[in-house]
Design a protein around this nucleic acid. Structure first.
Lengths: 155, 155
DNA sequence: TGACATTACATGTTGTAACATGTAGCTCAC
DNA sequence: GTGAGCTACATGTTACAACATGTAATGTCA
């Protein structure tokens, strides 16, 4: 029998509005997902945030991206890209070069080591993702995507 | 025209699997929601986590709850309840007393000041929540709740 | 009863998030 | 070309998250 959110968080009273339960479900599900993904990524020495940066930089290819562009592409807002990239450069996952045309820009690029780590971690992550969504029908998935987009959009 | 997740995070390639987009949507939506809620709560001197604790303790009433019980009821896992409650006790939102029957337990209770802050913050929060879910049909909401529960449950 | 495990919490440590502020480099008006 | 304003990044600071470890109180069982 599927466990309801009410049981999961041992809530005694029912939800006043169904929409409240939906919003809380989103927060709870994201917490569960992020924790599960971090568990997987820990084995590869990555955090969820760093994994995201690596994917973004792999997508950008040889040209790389500056810090501002990376921040715009992140799934969740990161207020301190500088030091995040500092740490990733220290671990050898990325390299940074100051742009000679506009010396304000610092272009970050994924390194060969970063590509390797990313290639190692991705299948593990995809396996858990597929397992979690296996029981959803295509219509369920489409509904999820559509409803969540509506919630993100301000009225 | 509704903005797609792909546009929001400036992703260049389409998603390989629709389910991948759904999972990313959950994480992104939760980040947006949490940020919005924290914005609202900041005006009341609360974090999202503290607000949750206050609601839990109000639900528990006069009998209060020990730290372990609070942790079990949190929406997202909190690994350091002790110091979270420390901070809330410092701000006068809660009070703690050591249980004389089992001196390992520390029972936390919401204070009058905590109730006031909670009562002030809740309408603000509910307003934004209602605004975000206004465009969802009851069927959408039910689908969301059901699909998210399926994702949280391990196969 | 006493050794040992268990429970509930406290504390140490490290890393990171969040926000504010500072600084270097560029742009454009005048 | 010089000063105002903007952009992109760096840094300071505080608070918090996450994990490991420590400690006191209780339960358990030979």
């Amino acid at each position: 029998m599927p466990m309801t959110l009410k049981d999961e968080i041992k809530q005694t009273k029912p939800f006043a509005r169904p929409a409240d339960e939906a919003l809380l479900s989103i927060l709870r599900t994201a917490a569960v997902l992020e924790h599960a993904e971090n568990e997987v990524l820990k084995a590869h020495g990555l955090t969820h945030t760093q994994y995201n940066v690596l994917r973004i930089l792999r997508g950008a290819g040889k040209r790389g991206l500056c810090g501002r562009d990376i921040a715009d592409r992140m799934v969740s807002h990161v207020p301190d890209v500088s030091r995040l990239l500092d740490r990733m450069e220290d671990s050898g996952l990325i390299a940074r070069t100051r742009d000679p045309d506009d010396r304000r820009h610092v272009t970050a690029r994924i390194t060969a080591a970063g590509r390797t780590v990313l290639a190692d971690a991705t299948p593990d992550l995809e396996r858990t993702g597929r397992a979690r969504t296996a029981r959803l029908s295509p219509a369920d998935v489409a509904g999820l995507i559509r409803s969540l987009a509506a919630i993100r959009e301000l009225p």
